[in-house]
């Protein structure tokens, strides 16, 4: 069974970001044949722990479990509200404290919410470069939901959700998580280090 991690940086209760994350998760789970463990992470719950980790260099307590969930997941849905023309600081903080290489090649679906559709391109000019740097495999369709998407335009948000979820599910099916060499279990022999290798 594959594991799907869902990271949501919404702040409100209820939050539109959470709503979008839930719909993307449900659609992806359905596209995977219902055979996926969905692990939801609400970044607000870890807000203080994330700042602490930024200062100390290690994630503590339940936040460590959240980090490990993302590291071990077969796929990731990452959803943020758009603040000041970009992802929120809370959202960025989470990806700042992940160990390097954690998202290497991991299938990722991006989502964002905002008050108006004018900010929809923030996904492409802010989120995609971040995940390109993290070497994630981001699916082509990202889903932006403005306030009005929750009311009118029957089917249009749902269509985008279904298409994006299908892409993520296909990528997760096609790409088993790559086995990573463990530098602690399998160190580079010293002769190689000395030879500049």
């Amino acid at each position: 069974m594959s594991t799907l991690a869902v990271v949501s940086a919404g702040l409100g209760q209820p939050s539109a970001t959470r709503l979008l994350a839930d719909r993307l998760a449900a659609a992806t789970s359905a596209a995977l044949g219902g055979d996926a463990a969905v692990e939801k992470i609400e970044l607000r719950d870890h807000a203080h722990a994330m700042v602490d980790a930024t200062l100390t260099g290690f994630p503590s307590g339940t936040f460590r479990a959240a980090v490990e969930t993302v590291a071990n997941a077969d796929g990731l849905i990452a959803v943020t509200p758009i603040y000041s023309a970009s992802y929120s600081g809370l959202f960025k903080s989470f990806f700042d404290v992940l160990e390097r290489d954690v998202l290497d090649g991991k299938p990722v679906l991006l989502g964002a919410t905002g008050g108006t559709e004018r900010h929809s391109l923030a996904i492409d000019f802010a989120m995609r470069p971040l995940f390109a740097y993290l070497r994630a495999a981001v699916v082509p369709t990202a889903v932006y939901a403005a306030s009005e998407d929750w009311g009118g335009g029957a089917g249009r948000l749902a269509d985008r959700v279904t298409r994006a979820a299908g892409e993520l599910a296909a990528l997760m099916d096609a790409r088993p998580a790559p086995a990573k060499a463990d530098p602690y279990d399998d160190p580079v022999p010293f002769e190689d280090l000395l030879a500049g290798g």
Partner: peptide, 23 residues
């Protein structure tokens, strides 16, 4: 750095882990 642990082991030198700030 695993490389430094490897280095200490290679020479038979000591290895010091200043573990005071992390779990």
């Amino acid at each position: 750095s695993p490389e430094i642990a490897e280095q200490a082991a290679y020479y038979g030198d000591g290895f010091f882990a200043n573990h005071i700030f992390w779990p």
